[in-house]
């Protein structure tokens, strides 16, 4: 079973839920937790895993052999991303625009382009308690998160349960993170911001045909907009988590919420029972 935890809006509690749901599940199941927020990965801060493996995420980029190149301009012509500009006796390559599609090398009539590896980030794998944990870290200055996310996603579905911490927003990194999952838990907050961004995420999930249900975090702090919306649209609300200064403080310090806050453990238990009931 592959379960994503997403929100649209940032800072609603995705990572907190992903980490604590995984920690609860590892008591009885084999669990993998994937942190797909490779731009700002945080799950490891709370999980404190022992990393045992580390590998670079490599993408292919063109390397031009000046001896073979006759500056015909074919590579620039076939590059849909404007990553190559051919001048009279010079080729300029813009690495942040390259999607590693391989067109330039494939179509070069002189076979003057070789594709070489470029590191965009790293993947680390390890264990925390019995949770198998994998995350990716995008190198600072890199624009494209998707190749790193795709490497993290290769660990999806190996264990019986995979929990996936999904980045905020609704664009390419989110789509890559949601790929081939069975169910999505949407974590939102009861404000017009939370509702608006949840609405955007719902459209994406519907398009990708992923079933979902909602968790309302800090549900006593805002208005009833999110709850009314869910009732109207017949969207299942899994749990509502109240704002609790003690929980916020403990979490800010990376404390063990399951152990130290009994009502929170009960909430996670109810969350899992709800998800199990909804996933075939």
């Amino acid at each position: 079973m592959k379960i994503g935890i997403a929100s649209g809006k940032g800072g609603t509690g995705k990572t907190t839920l992903a980490v604590n749901l995984s920690a609860y599940l590892q008591e009885k199941h084999l669990v993998t937790l994937l942190d797909c927020d490779v731009e700002e990965p945080n799950a490891h801060i709370f999980l404190k895993p022992n990393f045992t493996d580390k590998k670079p995420v490599l993408v292919k980029v063109p390397q031009i052999n000046r001896e073979e190149c006759d500056y015909c301009g074919k590579c620039s012509e076939v590059c849909a991303f404007g990553a190559l500009t051919v001048l009279k006796s010079k080729i300029i390559f813009y690495r942040n625009l390259c999607h590693s599609c391989g067109s330039c090398a494939y179509f070069c009539p002189n076979k003057a382009i070789e594709e070489v590896d470029r590191e965009m980030g790293i993947i680390q794998k390890g264990f925390a308690q019995d949770i198998e944990f994998v995350h990716g870290i995008l190198n600072v200055g890199e624009a494209m998160a998707v190749p790193v996310i795709n490497e993290v996603k290769k660990y999806q579905g190996i264990n019986m349960i995979t929990v996936i911490d999904i980045p905020p927003g609704t664009s390419c990194p989110v789509i890559a993170s949601l790929r081939d999952i069975d169910f999505c838990i949407i974590v939102t907050e009861p404000t017009p911001f939370g509702l608006n961004d949840m609405g955007l995420l719902l459209q994406l999930l519907q398009k990708m045909e992923i079933p979902y249900a909602v968790v309302i975090n800090r549900w006593d702090l805002g208005d009833s907009g999110v709850e009314d919306f869910c009732l109207n649209e017949k969207i299942h609300i899994l749990i509502k988590i109240p704002f609790d200064k003690e929980l916020a403080r403990l979490n800010a310090e990376g404390g063990n919420l399951l152990k130290q806050i009994p009502w929170f453990r009960d909430s996670i238990l109810a969350l899992w029972a709800g998800v199990k009931g909804l996933v075939k």
């Binding site: 940032g10 990572t15 927020d37 731009e39 700002e40 945080n42 801060i45 709370f46 942040n96 995008l138 600072v140 890199e142 624009a143 494209m144 998160a145 980045p167 905020p168 927003g169 664009s171 990194p173 979490n251 800010a252 310090e253 990376g254």
Partner: peptide, 30 residues
């Protein structure tokens, strides 16, 4: 949010970025 493509497109060439953080482990790390 983040540090990838939309953030780079938003800030390159600006006079100043105001970075809003919060006193949590994640806030500091990010």
């Amino acid at each position: 949010p983040g540090i990838g493509c939309p953030v780079i497109a938003s800030m390159t060439g600006a006079d100043l970025v105001l970075i809003v953080t919060e006193p949590t482990l994640s806030g500091f790390h990010d």
